[in-house]
Design a protein around this nucleic acid. Sequence first.
DNA 1: AATCCTGTTGATCATATGATCTATAAAAGT
DNA 2: ACTTTTATAGATCATATGATCAACAGGATT
Lengths: 214, 214
Amino acid sequence: MDGRTDRAQTPAEDAATRRRLPPEERRQQIVDEAVRFFAEVGLDGKTRDLAKRLGVTQSLLFNYFATKDDLIEAVYEKVYLDRLSPGWPDRLTDRSLPLRVRLLAFYTEYSALIFEREWMRIFMFSGLAGAALNHRYLKHLGEVILRPVLAETAALARGARQPDMEDIWNLHGGIVYVGIRQHIYRMPPPDDPDAAIARAVDKYLSYFGIRPED
Amino acid sequence: MDGRTDRAQTPAEDAATRRRLPPEERRQQIVDEAVRFFAEVGLDGKTRDLAKRLGVTQSLLFNYFATKDDLIEAVYEKVYLDRLSPGWPDRLTDRSLPLRVRLLAFYTEYSALIFEREWMRIFMFSGLAGAALNHRYLKHLGEVILRPVLAETAALARGARQPDMEDIWNLHGGIVYVGIRQHIYRMPPPDDPDAAIARAVDKYLSYFGIRPED
DNA sequence: AATCCTGTTGATCATATGATCTATAAAAGT
DNA sequence: ACTTTTATAGATCATATGATCAACAGGATT
């Protein structure tokens, strides 16, 4: 043995992760790590494994969350909340700008938010589990984003072709699928995701005879 | 108590599920039910619950599969196998037919195969779990379906616009997303899925200046 | 420096879960 | 009818897992 005393603050322990944190801070720390953890291994991840990652006892988790389900609920809220900015409906319907510009702005920002491993995977896990928040989110998305997009498209569409909701879902799905490929199936991302999005939007608009400057 | 003897073949037991089946038959029965079961509850479904569904002891499962992972592997094989018919590459590149006809035929048949709850959910669960078969399938799909579609599109594209692989993935993703919405997120299906597919294909073709008769 | 509050640990419980093994009984062979 | 074979059940094991609780110790207050 070397001369070091062994009453040590174990050197393996992260210096930044000091013990005895204020409750709110600890709670956030737990939720943050839980998001990463459950996103990786799925919602059946074990509390002991999560605790190990946190460098904390498994029993501590139950000091902050009465049950594992409560913890998962907190993960859902952390992940789902503020993912749909309240400003978008207005911006999507701001007819002082061409629809193309509006759609590109929306999907560029939105994809930056959702093409993220944690979000994509938690969303998928929770969807498969039939979580209520998942349904609410999709309903909300349909109402505040997709339906306005439909209305804007219909207003500008020229020719006999009129969009229906299925067309909007197709646009949306084609774009979201980029993130699914990357984060769920772990395929390599496109060279230029923004370019891919732009082409998807252009394909969509041109199908309804809407020009870039419309 | 009533007068019935209790040595009964329990009336609850399904008459069709007679005991002591020939091994191959029993094995298939187990895999078939396992597909439904794991598709519903996820790959962390418990062997005891599966056995209960089968009206069989939990220990019997381990007579047919050494481990639970082996059973899941059998589920994967059952589900993944024969999902990509070997005839499609030839049919997709058969230039005696318009590309539109070929694409519609493919996606109509393909969607009939994959817009199925068991497939969709097992595919997603296995993708999230990082299963090797999932990667292989997607690689295969890219090689035998999407790449030929790219080549066919490129051959017919008029104007400056040339398709790249991302465009094909976008077409594909937009269509597959119909199934994801329906079976993963449990949203109501489109009124007419085939019509939705046709519009997706038409949108795609028209973007590259390909006419229906090309 | 002594005291108090409470965030954290360590031991532990009850149950769940994958897996094993022997006894049973259904069918096939003779 | 008797024997043999083997598919299946039932009991059981070892470990994993969510959850509980008393005891400890960090750090603020006095």
